[in-house]
């Protein structure tokens, strides 16, 4: 049994220390939550897609949200970020009530999400995709745009975009249409673009889906990097090895509800989790044995 994973960095140690004393039960209170969710429920017709009693996300940590297909993870993301409206429930982000807030305002508050089906804007160049992410651009208002008052800010925005592109190994592609990128490169672009907004919390919906193993490794490094820069990360992932590799905490959803929480190693030994995933009697842990759920079909 390996007692430590390859996860590294000072913020990681901090997060692990902070979470050490958190009880391993669904809805456990965290020492410093950035997001607190209460009674969020969403049904489609007769089907209850999401029914989360209570959940808290620790600030500055990487939290993985896992669960079988159809567990409600994407729907939960949509609800939290204002892309969908819950039947009931409220949630506080950094102390601010987000219920009923439109998606763009949620994003402006610093809670940025990416999409399971990548949304690169394919008819725009890579660099323009990036520039679009920058906040508070004066040239995005009609009159200053016509008057050309945005030129100097554009230089700064482009500089920042180029830096991020270099970090995500996309700099050579900057002038290409985003539509000419490979699936994995689009995932990278979408993530880099999200970072242009200077988020405080990043929510990634299957950032690794369809990405080859070599690229996965560099994506993982990027995600760890976000934590080192002080961001909070919540990500959905099916590959348990990936989850174990980078997350400080794991939340497990099944049939719309949170069924377990804890550090990766402990959660993956949890009886309820194994049952939810494998739907039967199993005495093996979810990783190490190689059971992983990388999902490519959705692409």
């Amino acid at each position: 049994m390996p007692d430590s994973t390859s996860t590294s960095g000072t913020r990681h140690d901090e997060a692990v220390r902070a979470l050490a004393s958190v009880p391993r039960v669904p809805g456990a209170p965290k020492p410093d939550p950035i997001l607190v969710v209460d009674g969020v429920k969403r049904s489609f017709g007769g089907l209850t897609a999401v029914d989360v009693q209570h959940v808290e996300i620790q600030r500055g940590a990487i939290t993985a949200l896992v669960g079988p297909n159809g567990a409600g993870k994407t729907t939960f993301f949509n609800l939290l970020t204002g892309f969908d409206t819950p039947d009931t429930g409220q949630w506080l982000f950094d102390g601010k009530d987000l219920a009923g807030m439109p998606a763009y305002k949620v994003a402006r508050l610093g809670m940025i999400r990416t999409f399971q089906l990548t949304k690169a804007l394919s008819k725009m160049t890579v660099i323009d995709n990036m520039r679009l992410g920058a906040k508070n651009q004066i040239g995005e208002r009609m009159i200053p745009a016509i008057l050309g008052l945005w030129k100097s800010q554009e230089v700064a925005v482009t500089e920042k975009a180029d830096e991020l592109l270099a970090r995500f190994k996309l700099f050579e592609k900057r002038a290409d249409f985003a539509g000419s990128l490979s699936g994995g490169q689009r995932k990278l672009l979408e993530m880099a673009r999200a970072l242009m907004t200077d988020p405080t919390m990043v929510m990634l919906d299957e950032p690794m889906a369809g990405v080859n193993p070599a690229l996965t490794q560099s994506l993982l490094e990027h995600i760890k990097d976000l934590r080192e820069q002080g961001m909070t990360v919540l990500f959905v992932e099916h590959d348990m090895d990936v989850v174990r590799d980078i997350s400080d905490w794991v939340i497990v959803m099944a049939q719309g509800s949170v069924i377990a929480e804890g550090p990766p190693d402990e959660v993956m030994r949890d009886e309820a989790v194994i049952t939810a995933y494998l739907g039967g009697h199993h005495d093996k842990a979810l990783t190490a044995s190689g059971v992983s759920y990388t999902e490519e079909a959705s692409q």
């Binding site: 892309f83 763009y104 949304k119 804007l121 008819k123 323009d128 520039r131 679009l132 040239g139």
Partner: peptide
């Protein structure tokens, strides 16, 4: 201008722009 960039983004995928 950046205004044009936003509307071209909307033409393609408004959820991406909203996000």
């Amino acid at each position: 201008s950046p205004w044009g960039r936003v509307v071209k983004g909307i033409r393609e995928d408004e959820d991406a722009v909203r996000s």
